[in-house]
Each structure stands twice: as structure tokens, then as C-alpha cells.
Amino acid sequence: MEILKVQNLCKTYGKGEVKVEALKHVSFSMEKGEFAAIIGESGSGKSTLLNCIGALDTPTSGNVSMDGQDLFSMQEEKRTIFRRRNIGFVFQSFQLVSELTVEQNIMFPLLLDYRKADPGELNEILEVLGLADRRYHLPGQLSGGQQQRVAIGRALITKPKLILADEPTGNLDKKNSQDVIDLLTQASRRYQQTILMITHNQNLTASVDRIMRVSDGILTDLGGMTNEKLS
């Protein structure tokens, strides 16, 4: 079942001599439960692509549709609500709310919808993330790896159609990085969660279903690379 469809996506910054084409006619789609990685050099346009898919940024042209709904035909308020219900984000710098506990941070997207989390589901996520004994801690009392696990929990709690992870291991050491990738893989498998991850660490793409490369704004699909290292 097709969850994400990106068609002819272009993003241009500036005009005239300073014009930069960050994305050039990018098109691809993702199936439900698929775990894909986008790799590329720094400045290649991979973050721009992720931001456009997540409706954080507006493309110059092209379409992004999720479960058949065109993101950019929606009004801003509606798009925001759509985003918090259907897209989970995991950022490099965690972006946790420092005034909320681990539990509250995980529930944050639900709280914004004035909904309560199902205690069973919340406990399960906390258990899976290894944060059960830290549920009442504030982000400032956690290590970097733990903070990123909270961010993954927050992305999972709404059972979104798509999780976008932008360099989720960028601020972590090797062990924590592997833990985070394992968690994302587990989420993909256990909850049939569609995940699109950006990384420049090719070692971390070992467990993904599919790899795409962005170079100078052009996306190339490298296909399924399970258990295969990129050369």
C-alpha cells in the first residue's frame, strides 16, 4: 500500500546569480512498513527533501501526497494538524520540550490534540525504548542517547503514517547510534511503521529496506540493500 508519493519535487533558493537548485525534479514513493534511508554529502539537498516531505518547508514546485492527500493543497492550520497526526519527526538535536517529563514529551503530539495516551500503549513504548524507569525525568536529566529515544517515542505515539528522521544519530556516540537504528528498525517491523531516515553514516544503513542517494539535488534510488554495505 503506497503511503508516500513524491512527484517532480523542486526547491530553488534565491534568484539570478545566487540561485541555488536544492532539489531537481525528485520523484519517488514509499510503501507502508518500508524503512528507507537517504544518503548524500553535506549540502546535497537531503535535509531539504525531508523538510519538504514533512511539510516544514514549501517546495517551489511538485507534489507530496500522503495516503492520497496532497500536503500543500491544505491550509496552514489544517496542514499543521495533519502533520502532528500523520508524520513523526526525529531530529538530530532531539528538540525535546525541556519543561516536560519523558512521559509528557512522548505524549506531546497527543496533548496538542487534547487527547490522552492509552496507558497500555504508553507503557509499551516506554518499555521498548528502555525508558520505563525514567518516565518522570526531565530531558536535562537524560543522556543524549536517552533523549533521542524519547524523541523516537514521541514520533511513535500517534502511530503516524510516516516517520521522518533527520540524522537521528548525528549527536550520538557509536553505541547509542546503533541503539537508535535498532529501535527504528524494530518500530518498522513491529508496528509496520513507514520510516524515512537521512544519514551520512553509511554503516547505519545496514538494516534499512531501501537506500536513496541525493547528489546535487538529484535523487537516485539505489534499491534494497539489506545486509549489504554500500561501496
Binding site: 538535536s93 519543561e99 505524549m107 549527536n171
Partner: peptide, 22 residues
Amino acid sequence: SGNGNTVFAAKRAANTRLFHIE
């Protein structure tokens, strides 16, 4: 570390039981 805004490191959590999150 990208976590430079340490002044906002809270000492206690916000009360989300009494009020809406915002």
C-alpha cells in the same frame, strides 16, 4: 553540543493535568 540554551533547562515539569498543554 547544540544544547546551548541551558537557561531553559527546567528544574520541574509543567503541570499538564490541570491545564491544556499550551
